[in-house]
């Protein structure tokens, strides 16, 4: 639970084109791109898609290693998919045979296809999450949920909860790091023993962490009430979301790509 691990899927500040786009545009684009990814039927389609994503990636000037780091957690699923398809999807020419096991043309095709789709799915999502600050994200979600308000979807409250939760992740990480060290200084052992022993040994860390989380929640509630906070209607914002020319260009480009994939059938 070190501080290093929080960079995963974390916002990397910058001022590239992607950083500047409206979060609503990015959320909608992400949705459209994911749809497009599932519409793709041929490898040509993937080349077209990779070309587009690659251009965005280069323009975003994000370091390569963040993508590899982001891909690490899904590596297992990707390999699993690849192996399953290679071994069990049948059809076409037989490339390789060992007893009852065969690797056939269809399997190789589907395996590579699905793997590429999975990887691109993660890379596209990373491209958006790495260039959008969590606060902007929450703002965007709130805005997009606004039309659902009459149906009883509490968009504003959801966004507020997201913002608060995100805001307190680093604080609680820091807190847990501090408590862990304080207990280690009293000879606590978090590293050795079997799973039950280890779970028991976590008590000196978890109890103070919960106590402090509740204390913080209380303090925050009092601080918000002291400022006469009441959410929802008629609340103005410090940063109003405003779509600019580039945002429209972005939405049109992405929609265009999706439609092109759909109608050309690549």
């Amino acid at each position: 639970m070190s501080m290093q691990s929080i960079t995963l899927g974390h916002y990397i500040p910058g001022n590239s084109l992607l950083h500047q786009l409206d979060p609503r545009v990015k959320l909608i684009s992400l949705f459209i791109l994911i749809v497009a990814l599932f519409l793709i039927k041929t490898f040509n389609g993937f080349f077209f898609y990779i070309f587009f994503i690659g251009a965005l990636f280069i323009s975003s000037r994000l370091p390569w290693k963040y993508f590899f780091r982001g891909l690490k957690p899904v590596l297992f699923i990707v390999l699993f998919t690849l192996i399953l398809h290679f071994l069990f999807t049948k059809g076409g020419e037989v490339y390789w045979r060992l007893g009852a096991l065969t690797v056939e043309e269809m399997g190789v095709f589907m395996g590579t296809f699905m793997t590429l789709r999975l990887i691109l799915l993660v890379v596209t999502t990373l491209l958006i999450t790495l260039t959008t600050s969590p606060v902007a994200f929450a703002d965007g979600i709130e805005h997009l949920l606004r039309p659902l308000r009459p149906l009883g979807v509490p968009g504003y409250e959801i966004a507020m909860m997201m913002t608060i939760a995100l805001r307190f992740i680093p604080t609680l990480m820091e807190e847990s790091d501090k408590i862990r060290k304080a207990q280690m200084a009293r000879g606590a052992d978090f590293e050795t023993g079997n799973i039950f022993r280890r779970a028991r040994n976590m008590i000196p860390l978890l109890v103070p962490l919960f106590v402090s989380a509740f204390r913080r929640a209380d303090d925050l509630a009092v601080a918000m009430e002291a400022r006469c906070y009441r959410g929802g209607e008629q609340r103005t914002k410090m940063r109003e979301l405003k779509a600019h020319f580039l945002d429209y260009v972005g939405i049109f480009t992405v929609s265009g790509i999706c439609l092109a994939i759909f109608f050309t059938g690549i």
Binding site: I179, A182, M184, A185, R186, D189, I203, P204, V207, P208
Partner: peptide, 20 residues
């Protein structure tokens, strides 16, 4: 290190937060 830590004790800031 665990033995060392009982010889060189460290009390953090706001140590009351570590009671459990």
């Amino acid at each position: 290190l665990r033995a060392l830590r009982t010889k060189i004790a460290l009390l953090f800031q706001f140590p009351e937060h570590q009671l459990f």
